[in-house]
Write a protein that binds this DNA or RNA. Sequence first.
DNA 1: GTCTATAGCTAGATAGAC
DNA 2: GTCTATCTAGCTATAGAC
Lengths: 222, 222
Amino acid sequence: MSAAARTPEVIRHPSQDRILDVAEALFASRGFSGVGLAEVAEKSDLSKSSLFHHFKSKTEIYASVLERLFKRLWETLEPTVDMSADPWTQLNQIVDVWTGFMADNPNTAKLLLRSMVERDFEDAGLSREELLNRHGRYLRLIIQKVVTLMKAGMDAGTFRQQSIGHFVQTLIGATIFHFASGEFGSGMIGGDQFDPRRVEARKTELKNFLRSGLGSAAGDSR
Amino acid sequence: MSAAARTPEVIRHPSQDRILDVAEALFASRGFSGVGLAEVAEKSDLSKSSLFHHFKSKTEIYASVLERLFKRLWETLEPTVDMSADPWTQLNQIVDVWTGFMADNPNTAKLLLRSMVERDFEDAGLSREELLNRHGRYLRLIIQKVVTLMKAGMDAGTFRQQSIGHFVQTLIGATIFHFASGEFGSGMIGGDQFDPRRVEARKTELKNFLRSGLGSAAGDSR
DNA sequence: GTCTATAGCTAGATAGAC
DNA sequence: GTCTATCTAGCTATAGAC
């Protein structure tokens, strides 16, 4: 076991990163089957054949796009959450960082949504398990963090007793959909979701909602 | 103007409905570009050419699938919400019916998500506007209902003051994602999302969350 | 209304020169 | 590592018989 063995840095050829940048944006907006390698090649200033020198198949490009993106998400989120803080503070930090990442990396929400909804790749020779074990590893780490926080918060009486699984589903849906919803979403909030002012508004609305739900203190009679 | 002019019933040939049933399930799981008409034809017990007798193009099939589904959703939701009831009751009714529809029509959540995230059809000759004006009409009616309810609830002091647009985004994300998330979601809640017991649990968790947020009465100190 | 046959095109992937 | 040329299989859509 050599010294610097943890998080082995993937050394990528400049062309590889250019391909992944181009492919990421295209896969996000049109999905796996909706993207042709001719377009990826053209926008990468390469020929189609050169893509196959760097990646053995289209599916391999897709898997690499997801892996790179989710690794970045985890590496952004992991160090910014203070695990010794109280549950509300931790939750707010997670919402801030998660939302901030979606805003800074506009392909993330759509790709994350697709990676859960789609089954395209199953026809393409790479099994769901293989694909999930490449990028899904990082997603599991993130979720584990939220689950741990919820358990602690419920034990301490800070959070209401509830199903952690359902809460995670609600939280993911609420945070991701907003940034994946494109023109629909910008219509709902009166302008581009990715505008910095609206991103901050989104964080505030989410945190208030998590704390209080929909009700006012006054009208809270069941 | 003849007598029975409202909600003109679309008369469809049995084959047309069979095609739409098959196409609906396929488009939901693999998206517009991910589905080939050969498979649609085979599973409809027809030849590919017969599809083109009933629909002028693949895009037309996709648009018809969405239109039929969203029309059903609106017609299910519209009469079941008692507009004279108090805001909490109305909101709970909307959550119950909406969630129930997603559970009874398992393709809805995925198709709704896709219709907002994807841009496939733009390459296929039908503009976003044309497509949205076919099925989007019903979606707008539904959202209008929620917006009206929120305004009334906030004016009455029943609901906390907040951005209605952000609330709608949160609500849609929270309700749709759960039923679109496939194996990921069933992993989160320990079994099939569409199992009737878990559907009821989902409704309850959502309604509690809307009312109280995450916090307990005890730990609610900001 | 349904079929067979096929046109015309584009997809992912490979061969082999440089 | 990048290219041109090419293969084969798939695609949407049409023609025309029954």
